[in-house]
Amino acid sequence: MTDPLDPLLGALADPTRRRILARLALGEATVNDLTDALPISQPAVSRHLRILTEAGLVERSARAQQRPARLVPGALKPVEDWAMSLRDTYETRFAQLDRVLAAMPDDPDADTPDTET
């Protein structure tokens, strides 16, 4: 099974591509718009857009010659579902660990831990 996070996290790992996504979050933009907004060349913008499109994060409209790019609604859902902040992750796990510790037998050397909580 291909993990849906693979292409998404690869596309998001690059700071320039995140800036392009930030711009597109405000509304659709052409390659020229993005080239004006970012300190990179037009071919570089096109290359990043291609990667974002292949990852399913961005789509190009066919209705105008400039083929403006826009975000694909809901494309980040798999990332959102997985990504909680490090802090939330630790806090959630440690609260669960509190309960496991409270349910464990008193003898710390017992070799048959109670797994029936």
Binding site: A22, A25, L71, L76, E80
Partner: peptide, 11 residues
Amino acid sequence: STYDQLDALLA
């Protein structure tokens, strides 16, 4: 919303 979360990620 997706875009609120995207903003947080990007910021």
